[in-house]
Design a protein around this nucleic acid. Structure first.
Ligand code: SF4
Length: 368
DNA sequence: AACACGGGGAC
DNA sequence: GTCCCAGTGTT
């Protein structure tokens, strides 16, 4: 076993920072939001990147900038257009809060994104991470970011035993990140640490031989790098059974808007109810039709089953087409619902599983 | 402190 | 299937 070089990072902080920054300058990926320091563009990217991988974000980022080129355009846009541009990205409160924050920037700061930490951090949807990221990258202010990448890299580099997904450990990680931050190059240093985590110090298999800071890595030195960071065990997610119905009359279907807050808040959906596992899906959908849409639906066709996994539960949705083939059904449906033409479906924002229902519907109506 | 909140990439 | 991602808000 050959001896490997190891330096305590605390004894060589300036060298560590320089090595990391040199590596970043040579290896940074040419991502769309790295083409300028426009604080709005940086902000858009940081909101989209929350809990979302780079490859997923790129097409959404490009489209968003086309539709909402600046903070004023976002502030004045209707919420349905905002959610439609976010459709498929998940965590829709990010879109709702960003939209609200744009209004706050106009109202409180004359349309100018504030450079002051307290002022920016106070905007809707802006937490510790986003405030530090935008202010350091766009304005060069010395605030250290702590995200999943940073926690993983720090846990290995410094051998921190605290669980990365324990909210109580956040203070420790923030403290360490504050200490190693290069206050002369905070934006690049923050991005370098995250880039290292995303491309080298990866969750499963860190590429230590290719790591620019391996000589400072206590985790590698102690051969503990692959078992760090520690993590609190995840809970199991229950399975919920649901029944969704697509009421159809001529070329029209019923959709409804979900409550503005909570799961998939503000998105549209086909009428859906939960059912006990033992309850026959067909009877549940019959009851739903009678209570919410009145008589007239004389043909019920199963379209299939849609499965979807959320963070805290899974759903299995039995989908039915309910047709009124004889007489017209009631024109008014429950308060949040409405009849629309099938061709209008693409103009409303839907969740992923509802988009799959639309696929099932189109396949049934036009099997080709 | 614990939980709610989407969807997808990597394995 | 599991893990986990450039996190934030609510209770
Ligand atoms: S040496 Fe390995 S474990 Fe340490 S920071 Fe680099 S990639 Fe991560």
């Amino acid at each position: 076993m050959p001896k490997t070089t190891f330096f305590k990072i605390t004894a060589r902080l300036p060298r560590f920072r320089a090595d990391l920054l040199t590596w970043y300058a040579a290896h940074r990926r040419p991502l769309p939001w790295r083409q300028s320091r426009d604080p709005y563009r940086i902000w858009v990217s940081e909101v989209m990147l929350q809990q979302t991988q780079v490859a997923t974000v790129i097409p959404y980022f490009e489209k968003w900038l086309q539709v909402f080129p600046d903070i004023a355009a976002l502030a004045t846009a209707p919420i349905d257009q905002v959610l439609k541009s976010w459709e498929g990205l998940g965590y829709y409160s990010r879109a709702r809060n960003f939209h609200r924050a744009a209004g706050e920037v106009v109202a409180r700061h004359n349309g100018e994104i504030p450079r002051d930490y307290a002022a920016f951090r106070a905007l809707s949807g802006v937490g510790d991470y986003t405030a530090a990221a935008v202010l350091s990258i766009a304005f060069g202010l010395p605030y250290a970011v702590v995200d999943g990448n940073v926690k993983r890299v720090l846990a290995r580099l410094l051998v921190l035993e605290a669980a990365a997904n324990d909210p109580g450990a956040k203070i420790l990680f923030q403290e360490k990140a504050d200490q190693i931050l290069d206050r002369n190059h905070p934006g690049d240093f923050n991005q370098a640490l995250m880039e290292l985590g995303a491309t080298v110090c990866k969750p499963r298999t860190p590429d230590c031989p290719g790591c620019p800071v391996r000589v400072y890595c206590a985790g590698l030195h102690g051969q503990m790098q692959t078992q760090l960071p520690n993590r609190l065990a995840a809970k199991k997610t229950p399975l919920k059974h649901q029944v969704a119905v697509v009421p159809l009359w001529e070329n029209q279907v019923v959709i409804r808007r979900r409550p503005a807050q909570g799961l998939l808040g503000g998105l549209w959906e086909f009428p859906v109810v939960e059912r006990a596992e033992t309850e026959p899906a067909k009877r549940v959908v019959g009851d739903l039709l009678n209570s919410e849409f009145g008589p007239g639906f004389d043909r019920l066709t199963p379209l299939g089953t849609v499965k979807h996994a959320y963070t805290h539960f899974k759903i299995e949705v039995s989908v039915f087409l309910a047709e009124a083939t004889d007489s017209a059904p009631r024109s008014t449906v429950s308060e949040n619902g409405k009849w629309i033409n099938i061709s209008e479906l693409e103009t409303y924002p839907f969740s992923k599983y509802n988009l799959r229902i639309i696929e099932l519907l189109r396949k049934h109506l036009d099997p080709s």
